[in-house]
Nucleic acid binder design. Sequence first.
DNA 1: CTGAAAGCGCTTACAG
DNA 2: CTGAAAGCGCTTACAG
Lengths: 331, 331
Amino acid sequence: MGIKDIAKDCGVSVATVSRVLNGTKFVSKPLQEKVLASIERRGYVPDHIARSMVLKKTFTIGLIIPNVSDMYHQMVFSSVESTLEASGYKVLVCRVQDTLRNERIYLDLLLQNRVDGIILMHESNNPDVYAQLKKTQVPIVLAGIDIPGLQFPQVRIDDFSAAKDGTRYLLKLGHKRLGLIAGSGYSVGDKRLEGYKKALAEYDIPFDESFLEGGGYTIESGFQAMKALLKRNTSLDAVFVLSDEMAVGALSAAFELHLSVPGDLSLLGFDGITLSTYTTPMLTTVSQPISEIGQKAATILLQMLQTDDPVPKLTLLPYTIREGRSCISHQ
Amino acid sequence: MGIKDIAKDCGVSVATVSRVLNGTKFVSKPLQEKVLASIERRGYVPDHIARSMVLKKTFTIGLIIPNVSDMYHQMVFSSVESTLEASGYKVLVCRVQDTLRNERIYLDLLLQNRVDGIILMHESNNPDVYAQLKKTQVPIVLAGIDIPGLQFPQVRIDDFSAAKDGTRYLLKLGHKRLGLIAGSGYSVGDKRLEGYKKALAEYDIPFDESFLEGGGYTIESGFQAMKALLKRNTSLDAVFVLSDEMAVGALSAAFELHLSVPGDLSLLGFDGITLSTYTTPMLTTVSQPISEIGQKAATILLQMLQTDDPVPKLTLLPYTIREGRSCISHQ
DNA sequence: CTGAAAGCGCTTACAG
DNA sequence: CTGAAAGCGCTTACAG
C-alpha cells in the first residue's frame, strides 16, 4: 500500500510512480496510464507525512487566535482557509486558552515543522514568546494586531482613526456624555481608547474616567461592563463598545435594566460581525473588513512562502461606520 | 540542528538523544543532563514530521464540521481541543463549504496520513464520501449526528425526544398554533420534525403543513424563514425554531415585523449556545450538553486510538429545557 | 546503560 | 523517458 507496491504492480520504478503522481517530469503515456490504473484499482493514497519530510513542507499554516472575539476570529479563519485552499494549504487553528503556559506550547507545536507559516492574531504578554517568534525561520504575518517590537508584516485597520471616527459619529449625533466599554489585553484596545480621547478633545469634552469601563472582548464581559457603567452613571447619552460581541452583552444588560436602545441610550459597536446585523435593535458599528483582513494576510503569507519578493510591511484596510438602529440623534 | 548535531555535540549516539527526548528508556544521569543542556543551549526543537513518519502517528485528529451552526460547532471544537490537549493531540478543523467537491477533498487530505482519527459532525449527501469512510482504517466518531448506514460510534442527544419534549413544553403553556422552523440537510432535523409531529398528535392537534417552514441552520435562514412563516400565518401562538442561530434570526425578524416576543408570540430555540442567554429576550431553548458532546466524542476517539477496548456504539447525552424569557403562558 | 544500523515512504539529482 | 540509490530526521529492535 505504498508507492513501492504500485511500482511493483506496474513493473516500473518508484521514481516513475512518484513522477506521475506529482506531474513533476514527463512520463510516457502508456506507463502513465498503467500507473494511474493501478493507483485507482488499489485505492492507493500517497502518504503526506513522508512527502512532507523530504520536501520540508507540510502545506499547513498555523492560525493563532485568542479565546475572545470568537465570531470575529471565526470569520477570519473562514476567509484564510478559503484563500489558502486553492494553493493546497490547510489551516491549523490554535486558540490560546490561557496566556501563560498554553501559548508557549502552541508555538512549540507549530515550530516542530508542523506548519510552513503562521498567521498571528493573538497578542502575548510573555516576552519569551516574542523572543521565540523572532528566532524562528517560519514566515509570520500579523492580522488585526500590532506588536511594536516585531517586524512581521501586518494586516489591519487603523484602530486609532476608526475609534476616533466612531466617537465623532456619536458626537455629531449630539451626544455629549459618552461612555466607553474598552477592552484590555490587546494593543488595539489601547489605540481605540486613544482615538476616543482624541475625538472628545476635538469637541472640547473633558475625558471622564468614570465613563470608562474595561471589558474582555466577550459577550459576558460586555454584559458585566455595561451593568457596571450604567450603575455608576445614570446620565449617559451613548456608549461606544469596542467590540460587537461585548456590544451584544451590553444590549442584553440594557434590556435587563429596562433601558431602551436607542431610546434612552445610543450604542455603537466595533467590528461588524455577522451577528451585529441581527441584534435588536440592529447595531450601528465601526465595521472592519474582516474577510479581507484574513484574505490579505493569507495572500501575503502565501507570497512569503512561494516567492522571494518583498511583501508590504503594513497593509491598512478601510473601515466604515455601518449604520443600524442602535444610535439616534440627540439634538 | 537535527538530533545528529546534538548527539555529536555531546559525544553520544542519536539513540541516546532520542531516549532522553522521549523518556522511553533509562539514560544515566550525567548523559541525560549533558544532552538536555545541549538541547537547551542550541535551541533544538525535534522535527515532529520525522517522528510522525516512523511512529505512523501524527497526534492530530480531524474535526469535520459543516458551515452552519457555527457557534454550536465552535463550542464543540473548544471542548474537543481541551479534551485532547492533555494527551498531546491537536485538532485540524475542516469546515465543509460546499457539499459537492469540498468534502471529498477534505477526506482525502485527512486520510493521507495527516490525522490519526476523525470526529465527524457533517452529514454528506454524497454516497461516495461514505463509501470512502467505510474503507478507511482511521477511527471515526460521529458527534451530534446519526448516519444510519455507518457503524461508527455516535455521541449525541435523542433529537426525536428532545423536540417532542420541546413541543410538549409549548403545548403545556397553552399554545395551540405552533409554527415550526425546521432545518434541512441533516437527519437531526428530520428527527426533530418527527418529535414535533408526535407531540402534536399526543395533544390531538392536526399537523398543519403551512405552519412549517424550512431553514438552513444559519441566522440569516432563520430570519428569512420567520418572515415567510409570519407572512403566511398571522395567528401563530408560538414558534419552535430547531436551532438557536436560526432563533436569533427569527427574533430579529419578529422585531422587524413589530411583533413582541413573547408578548405576541412565544419562541423556543434549540441547542443552548452561549449567545442564546444574551438575546433580548433571553431565549428559552432545548439545550444540548454541547461541551459534553465534544468531550465525550474526544474521549471515545482517544480510547479507540490508545486501546483495543470496545467503545460504546451509542452515547446518548441528556438534554434540558432551559427557560429564558421568550416563552409565555397562553392560558 | 549505550551504540550501530535498519527502516518509516516518499522525492530527486545523477546516470543512462 | 526511466531507474538505482541516496537522503529527509527521526525511533527502536538488536547486540553488547
